[in-house]
Amino acid sequence: MLTDAIEFFHLVRPWLGGAFCLLGAVLTVIGTAGVLRFPDFYTRLHAASITDTAGATALLIGMGLMAPGWVVVAKVAAIWVFLFLTSPTASHAIANAAHVAGLEPLIGRLGRGEVDPASGEEA
């Protein structure tokens, strides 16, 4: 029974991994679309963090499922840990630099196709 389950898992593993990779890539594209369309710098930062967390996690889970051996799984896990330790630090550094330089965030509800005069883009 258990061996059957393990066999089934090994059969289905590459497909599951590919599906996770595709999911992660789609999440990444969604985050990037957010980076393109959000109106000011601070809101773009939030969209970029989707890539860093959900997209990277899904992609790396997919890679781990497709891995041929434990060494590869360990490498994937190391990349994941590094991304999760460094990406908030980098985000905070960028946000802090912008804040210190005096970049003012947009505050209040935005929506319904308003055009933001500061960056001159369609919302």
Binding site: L27, I30, G31, A33, G34, R37, F38, P39, D40, Y42, T43, H46, A47, S49, I50, T53, A54, P105, L106, I107, G108, R109, L110, G111, R112, G113, E114, A123
Partner: peptide, 24 residues
Amino acid sequence: EILKANWRVIRACVKADLDINPAL
């Protein structure tokens, strides 16, 4: 918590009309 929070931001990214409420 991160997974739960991701869902909201993803929805904000793909919604046809921009609907956000930034605050400091």
